[in-house]
Amino acid sequence: MRSTLVSYVLFAAMLIALAAVFLWVPTEKEMGIIQRIFYFHVPSAMSAFLAFFLVFIGSIQYLRTREEKWDRLALSAAELGVMFGLIVLITGPLWAKPVWGVYWRWEPRLTSMLITFTIYVAYLMVRDYGAQASQAPRLGAVMGILAFANVPLVYYAVDLWSADQQLHPPRNVGLEPTMEYAKWICYATFFLLLFHLVAQRMELARIESAVVRLRQKLDDA
């Protein structure tokens, strides 16, 4: 019931965000129409990092309490973080081609995102392929904590490595007011989408483990 309500709110928010991005904001002077990808690119990046933070929280809480729900949070957030990371890594090059002239530059922010992305893909792979079902939550939690601790180090090291390659605008670049509003509408929509999907995925994981338990009970009987 609650999730249906959230779905409707989310749908409305998406329509508003799309209208804001495509009808309301002015076209950027130098980059032209392609700049509108900004409203998807940047909120996706923020959502990815928010998801990785949720993995961190879920992992710590799982090791503390050993409650399955925290592991479900970590797993669901990791999957969605990887998905949003992928959106960043796809929209980034699409934006870069007309502006920088090439799809890919080993530019600090892009490189850092790629490294962070690979860390969480590895997290999912190890959980899926390596660990037995009984140990996956525990080993996943250890990885989830280490992975998040690594994020600032990745950014620091990559910045040192290629500071002269920096092509992203500085973090607090001045935006035109309507652009600023549209950005915040997009942030809100993406965060809502993230939380909604995490909740759905957690519910799915709960049902999955319930089915596994039921099947075991049937087998035992």
Partner: peptide
Amino acid sequence: LFAAMSNNMRLRELLLPLLLLPMILPALIS
């Protein structure tokens, strides 16, 4: 730490590089 973790895993020879390589990248860069 990863060696200890992967020691109990299936496919451990495959998984240790998967775990270690992305994590070690910032140090490798420096």
